[in-house]
């Protein structure tokens, strides 16, 4: 008892002085934290923050040959949000999100659930085959599908013949939307499948044991247990898919040569911004379009994450 009373004060003193010494050390270490992150900070500043600010400044100005550069405030934004070409592009990508994302989710979820349940060599082989399109650049993927859709040398006639149908004209006005949905699904479903598969493999298997003991079928286990267990990964890939789809550019841009009538120069907001900037050299208005699209994307994904925050655990 007495001993404790005696030793207590020195201990406290020691720890206090120790903390003071620790402060010096941690301050010196903090400088190392900046040193390690400095190269990235420079790159982030030069290639992200400065361009972003610069784009915003551009979007607030107008440049004419006669009048030079003048400040116009938010006039370009008002123009964008009342421009039928921009709005039709926004509508197209919103429609794409509504149609494409559920299809992608279902395909990748079914594949992931099957691969999680099966352990055969065939299953491992299919996992690889479903994933391989992700290794193909989006542009080359679109190029390949452009060939496949081609009425002159593509195999569409033959494949549709297998099930007794005639192939449609994939580049016709009313079909090009579906043709693009198919390309993107082919390209990305494997990537999402791998993410979901990894999440499923991370679930503690004893949960399934309990379900089996209770007499749940494989299908019930999948729907009632597995899907809720990977809800956060599902939300994650939904956000990825949403951000990607709203920025739709590569595939329609690539198919424009083949389907020039159906894919216009304002088919998606990104294509429109690209056309306005590099065909018409109106960098101010193009910046405003790009920024307006950025706002749509930011608000869209934020609202989505907020709406699903209870399920996903993101944004707590």
């Amino acid at each position: 008892m007495a001993q404790t009373a005696v030793t207590a004060p020195p201990l406290a003193a020691m720890s206090r002085s120790g903390r003071r010494r620790g402060d010096v050390v941690s301050r010196r270490r903090a400088r190392w934290g900046w040193a390690f992150t400095a190269p990235f900070a420079v790159i982030l500043l030069v290639f992200l923050i400065v361009p972003l600010v610069f784009a915003f400044v551009l979007s607030l100005q107008n440049t004419t040959l006669a009048g030079g550069t003048s400040w116009v405030g938010f006039a370009n934004y008002i123009k964008a949000f009342t421009d039928p070409l921009f709005l039709s592009g926004v509508w197209t990508v919103v429609l794409f999100s509504i149609v494409l994302i559920p299809i992608q989710m279902v395909v990748s979820l079914i594949a992931a659930l099957l691969l999680d349940a099966l352990t055969s060599r065939f299953a491992r082989f299919s996992r690889l085959m479903i994933f391989v399109p992700y290794a193909v650049p989006a542009v080359i993927g679109a190029l390949m599908w452009g060939f496949l859709y081609s009425p002159s040398f593509g195999p569409a006639q033959e494949v549709f013949g297998w099930i007794g149908l005639t192939a449609p004209d994939f580049f016709a006005d009313q079909n090009v939307f579906g043709s693009l949905v198919n390309i993107v699904t082919w390209q990305w479903a494997g990537y999402y499948m791998i993410i979901l598969y990894a999440a499923l493999q991370g679930v503690d298997p004893t949960i399934y044991e309990a379900a089996r003991v209770d007499g749940a079928s494989a299908f019930q286990t999948a729907v009632r247990i597995k899907i809720p267990m990977i809800a956060s990964s599902l939300v994650l890939i939904l956000v990825f898919a949403l951000i990607g789809t709203l920025q739709f550019f590569n595939e329609p841009q690539m198919l424009r040569g083949m389907a020039s009538g159906s894919i216009t120069s304002h088919y998606t907001p990104n294509i429109y911004a690209y056309t306005v900037a590099f065909s018409y050299h109106q960098f101010n208005y193009a910046s405003a379009i790009a920024f307006a699209l950025g706002i749509v994307i930011f608000v869209g994904s934020y609202v989505f994450m907020f709406a699903t925050r209870k399920r996903s655990g993101l944004m707590k």
């Binding site: 982030l44 290639f47 992200l48 923050i49 400065v50 361009p51 972003l52 610069f54 784009a55 551009l58 951000i243 709203l246 920025q247 550019f249 990104n270 911004a273 690209y274 900037a277 960098f283 193009a286 910046s287 790009a290 920024f291 699209l293 950025g294 994307i297 930011f298 994904s301």
Partner: peptide, 21 residues
């Protein structure tokens, strides 16, 4: 937080000013 937010910045917003720069 900036790093996380920057993942969401669309490529076009950057490409146009980068081209001008």
């Amino acid at each position: 937080a900036i790093v996380l937010g920057s993942v969401m910045v669309p490529a076009t917003v950057l490409v146009i000013p980068l081209f001008v720069m």
